[in-house]
Design a protein around this nucleic acid. Structure first.
Lengths: 193, 193
DNA sequence: GTATATACGGAGCATCACTCCGTTTAACAA
DNA sequence: TTGTTAAACGGAGTGATGCTCCGTATATAC
């Protein structure tokens, strides 16, 4: 059952290279707003055959998720750094702003999510976990410090933040998103001042 | 320029009937999670030809928007009713909860939105307006009553709420969404208690 | 150098969005 | 009722796209 693969061989270098090239092309395309780019085209730009693309990513969603996930990982990694640099509530505020800035700057996440079929499912479950862990640690710290109400569900905050990414549009967008962060934090305090 | 159509004839009854049947089938399908249902299939279930579907809705997005818009209209209509029945802040809270309940019960909005290509654009601009007006009037009343800070942008709240709809999943979802509503309202008060 | 697991490429298939146009029918007038 | 006509219908056909299959090529190990 739990048979461990003993790696008979080192992974082939061309395989890894191609995989990264595909991810790179896809990320660039999604960022540029070409959410509907045909997969043939992604393969062509990456200089590989369509078959190669499908071996690395079994379907369109898998490719999108891979791009998406790599970005989220980087976001999650920022959490412990911020926690070390600031007091709990400020660390959370900073992270939430980072989230917003991040989405604003590189429009990777929002368009990709919108392009997904029935985003309800697997993708969130998988990729969401790292973000969940990140926001979870920050909120826990704020609660432990007595700054936040104990009944705050970190996921609530994450959901609200994700919403901003979906309605991303218009000029005053960034400022508005930052105000929302403040609203959320104020609303979560144990005894609002 | 502004030539008014003088309706030479009454609209044909079969046309209207078919249009409504198509909308009905599409709404049901989307609600059932069949976001990717082929349009041929929608036409078949509605008992019309594919050509008829395309005459009423020039493309897939147009059909989705039509369903989506009808639902949003009903949500917007609830705002003035609630405003008449409750004090400002409670009217807003009630409306936001309605929004959440609505999405939870009939999963029309979230899946449809996710299925859209680049939700950034036209659809929101069009359909969003009615919701915007609804939440706007409720928030304005709360500000006028001195209950809310004057710098609250109603759109911020709408965005956060929309986020919930996108991360809709899991069992504790509804309760969590209601907590979020409370957080948002507490965070928006002029002097939080 | 040889063997072989691994990866590659792209022709081909199935499906789906959307178009086109000949046929049918509801509305109106006489 | 019947004739006229604008309006609506239906579905075969077209092009594009997601995905599969399998023969070929090559990196790794010995």
């Amino acid at each position: 059952m739990t048979d461990v693969k003993k790696p008979r061989r080192r992974p082939r270098s061309d395989g890894q290279r191609n995989r990264e090239q595909l991810l790179d092309v896809a990320k660039t395309a999604f960022t540029m707003g070409e959410v509907d780019i045909p997969l043939d085209e992604v393969a062509r730009r990456a200089g590989v055959g369509i078959g190669t693309l499908y071996r690395h990513f079994p379907n369109r969603d898998a490719l999108i998720e891979a791009v998406y996930r790599a970005e989220l990982d980087r976001l999650a990694e920022a959490a412990p750094v911020l926690a070390a640099q600031h007091p709990p509530v400020e660390a959370l505020r900073a992270w939430m702003r980072l989230f917003v800035d991040y989405i604003a700057a590189k429009q990777v996440i929002a368009p990709a999510l919108n392009g997904l079929v029935g985003g309800t499912g697997a993708l969130y479950a998988h990729s969401g976990d790292v973000l969940k862990a990140a926001v979870n640690s920050l909120v826990s710290a704020a609660i432990a410090a007595g700054e936040f109400r104990a009944d705050i569900d970190p996921l609530d905050l994450l959901r609200a933040l994700a919403g901003v990414s979906n309605f991303s549009a218009g000029p005053g967008w960034e400022g508005s998103a930052k105000r929302l962060v403040d609203i959320l934090i104020t609303g979560s305090r144990s005894s609002a001042s």
